[in-house]
């Protein structure tokens, strides 16, 4: 059969056919899928922080952050954590399987605004995935930024993502990478404790730092507190929010958070904008 994913008029924007090029196991429940075009139509370009809606035939569509390098043409890389039926179907796809891609959607990390400044990246768990794209971008235009600091926390050593890359980045000039886990075994010789405890090991110049945070919402709130305590102004703090998404275009109404649609007004928000809403329980 000549297969074709035709733009279905009731599905804005159109879905592109992609093929799984590789599936890499990062941890026991997290996998990185690399997608390439399945037909003549190329995969869309994206900005760090944006997400795709990935369609698994017959199962459904999932919002997944893009975790790859924005300058690698023609490929889309997503790191997916298997937490339910749909994500499980996605991570169990084999190379060659087709995936429908819509997107990219949403706002992106403020890499323009961060030029000429220190970049502080604070990630928790799978939150490192959308931040990896930002790190790629900073490293590609390294002279545009001053220091790069990456603080990363995960549950345990076996839950750490991108360990080799973290080590590589840590060896670069003007770059500090600190990793911690909540639960460390005796073979782990790194830090043990929540990611906020890493702050005492970095020297910050608050006025000249842009912070990008992604992780569980609880973690992000505590990191913001820590970062504000150190004098970084709210307009230089950015976070990536997550809500239930069905359409990614602001039509289904599910992702609303106060006045915002997380799919359109986010997922990346300046903390200044979110401040009145973040602490409201059951918003």
């Amino acid at each position: 059969m000549t297969a074709a994913v035709v733009s279905a008029p009731v599905l804005p924007p159109a879905m592109t056919a992609a093929r799984v090029a590789s599936v890499m196991k990062e941890t026991h429940d997290t996998f990185t899928l690399c997608l390439e075009p399945a037909e003549s139509e190329p995969l869309p370009a994206f900005a760090p922080g944006q997400f795709s809606m990935l369609y698994v035939f017959g199962v459904g569509e999932l919002p997944i952050s893009i975790s790859g390098d924005p300058h690698e043409p023609g490929r889309l890389v997503h790191t997916v954590r298997s937490v339910g039926k749909a994500t499980n179907a996605l991570v169990n796809l084999k190379p060659g399987a087709w995936v429908g891609v819509r997107g990219p959607f949403g706002t992106s990390w403020p890499l323009e605004a961060a030029r000429g400044r220190d970049v502080l990246i604070v990630a928790g768990g799978i939150g490192l995935a959308p931040l990896r794209s930002a790190i790629h971008e900073v490293l590609r235009h390294r002279d545009d930024y001053v220091r790069l600091m990456v603080l990363y926390g995960a549950r345990s050593p076996k839950d750490l993502l991108y360990r080799r890359q973290l080590a590589d980045w840590g060896r670069l000039a003007d770059t500090q990478v600190l990793t911690t886990v909540d639960y460390g075994g005796v073979n782990w010789r790194g830090y043990v404790g929540v990611v906020t405890t890493l702050f005492r090991y970095v020297r910050l110049h608050p006025a000249g730092t842009t912070v990008m945070i992604c992780g569980p919402e609880i973690m992000m709130r505590y990191v913001i507190r820590e970062v504000e305590k150190r004098g970084i102004p709210p307009e230089q703090i950015y976070l990536s929010m997550e809500r239930n998404m069905k359409c990614a275009v602001g039509f289904c109404g599910h992702c609303q958070m106060g006045p915002y649609f997380v799919c359109k007004d986010g997922p990346i928000f300046a903390y200044e904008r979110l401040r009145p809403w973040l602490e409201k329980y059951e918003l």
Partner: peptide, 18 residues
């Protein structure tokens, strides 16, 4: 109905439906 699709092995096709 937003779309229908058919699968053939690895690939699938979305039929221009509405």
């Amino acid at each position: 109905k937003m779309f229908e699709g058919t699968r053939d092995g690895e690939s699938f096709c979305i039929l221009k439906s509405p």
